[in-house]
Nucleic acid binder design. Structure first.
Lengths: 186, 186, 186, 186
DNA sequence: GATGAATGAGATTTCATTCAT
DNA sequence: TATGAATGAAATCTCATTCAT
């Protein structure tokens, strides 16, 4: 019974993520979500107080998930160059393995003001880059490096989604990692 | 009279761009736009058949403007390295000088709300990169290079808008240009 | 077991009375009542067929309680003047000792939301006043006297609830009783 | 055109007053009001921002109207006894001539918390009673007197509405005025 | 061209009531 | 008896678009 409850709640979150990332926040209605789950609109409100709460819950869990992925990639160890490559790999993997979550995040941050409560995944990376910079191992400012990294990954993701990239995903990944490493490290 | 007409029409487009880029498409109402211009809702429909038409008109003119800026930057001449740098400079300048237009474009393309029939400014750049690649002067695939370039510029723009970048704009611009050049050319 | 059943039923009625009198009928939800009792919505329907039934049950029992209080006060005996004073005292005491019940009654009858099939407590008083009037001991029509009595008590109650009355409750009570007696009897 | 605008707004207020006073606030829907006026729900919102705003606007205008009636009755002059009688007459006349407004006021104050902004009509009367009391011309405390006056008028009004009073309105009015005068003044 | 009232469709949210467990 | 998820109807409010003036 406890199962059932979290089951529906989970289904709502999954459906909402799918729809938000496909159609946007405003364009996705509570009715859409309900229909996708196979319940009625009213039932949504047993599990969430508002549409905004659904969005916020998704934001929190996705942000944490991505942060964790980054932290985990940094903890895999190796020298700084390897850690750098691991981070980028983690970003790409997250984008490609959880495209809806990744898309949701980009959408949210483009559309909504940052609530200062949320710690962004980028913060983790920035700390590492600051450290590299202090050691003179970064070719540019940490913030610029962060922009290049996260911006490149996002665009690669979008290009892939739109079928602008003919090459194999693994190939693209290796290519991007090595390009960014050469561009920023050394 | 023709003057006057296009005057109001122009004002509507400007107001709409300002509001769309600040609040989003759905969040901006026809009434908002009318108020910003200083006319009433009904008057908007003298100049446009629908809200979507306003959006579409903006998309066309902004896309063309950016494409032109890129083309012009490529026509400035010089060797390939200089052209490469000119293109990136043109992108950054466009983003920083016409932030609303640049934001509009990003918003539009991320939302996928509207059909994407438009030829993107990136196509111009891609041709140039393809050419470089054929001459073995590009360190990675043209599509990857395009992703790195456009993604980096977008992120720098977002960081600047959110005050994540402390450094002077000109400094950042030079930094990004040289970083991307070293990363991709040679 | 019969005990237990009427126990929960009683708790529901008490909680409902508390909430209805504080927030109004429509503003109080079944969920509110259930929460106040410490059960869930569905459980309410084991004891009552509908929200209206709860309201109706409360109306009946409160009306009877007040009627009884009035009848009892009239049966205490004494001369007519004493009975008159006893009735008013009973009304005031009921209002001050059972404010939620008294408020419920006023709310119910003012709203006219529900059918008013109930015999009002005032009827008891009216009989007594009719009798006084026949004996030429009432200074005005019985209906007017009833209006003055019940209206005054209600307003005193409201003023007290809203802290418009600085004086001690007992003092106010004596004051109102003697004022009404002088005004109506003799 | 300005005519038309205030025309509809006025019609909405009239319809709303009629319905609120007959059915209560929650029981009256925006759709009810719109239907009564002969427009659609959406049209209401060109004239008012919310249902609450309609209620608030009505509260303000009715409160002012009643206050004015009281003030005007006090300014008619005469000795204190005459002023006292004039006030009560003004109250009764207001209740009987504007039953919907009077009912609205009672309903509002029973259901809603007092917003401290609103100055109640009773305040005007209380000042006068305080003055009488200081001169030893009032038989009881001013607050008690106010409760008796306003409570009696309200009940007379309710009795009349429910056909509990057989006598002629004018007779009742004279009767109540003289009863209250004898009860409170001297 | 311009106004602004009105429409009509749809979105979010609420809640009494039902029902499977 | 009790739970709480789900329904379904209705309420408030929004807004692109139309239309009489």
């Amino acid at each position: 019974m406890g199962e059932k409850r979290s089951d529906t709640k989970e289904k709502i979150l999954e459906a909402a993520l799918r729809l938000f990332s496909k159609k946007g926040f405003r364009e996705t209605t509570i009715k859409d979500i309900a229909k996708e789950v196979g319940i009625t609109e009213g039932a949504i409100y047993r599990h969430f107080n508002s549409k905004d709460e659904i969005i916020h819950d998704l934001l929190i869990s996705i942000t944490n998930e991505l942060k964790e992925a980054i932290v985990k990639s940094m903890e895999k160890g190796g020298n700084e160059e390897e850690i750098f490559k691991n981070i980028i790999e983690a970003l790409i993997d997250y984008a490609f393995n959880k495209p809806e979550s990744y898309r949701f995040l980009n959408l949210y941050h483009l559309l909504k003001e940052y609530p200062q409560v949320i710690h962004l995944p980028g913060e983790q990376i920035l700390k590492f880059l600051n450290n590299l910079y202090a050691k003179k191992k970064l070719k540019t400012y940490p913030e610029v490096a962060l922009a290049v990294i996260t911006g490149s990954v996002e665009r690669i993701f979008i290009f892939k989604e739109r079928n602008f990239l003919k090459h194999d995903t693994q190939l693209i990944k290796r290519e991007l990692i090595s390009t960014l490493k050469d561009a920023l490290i050394g």
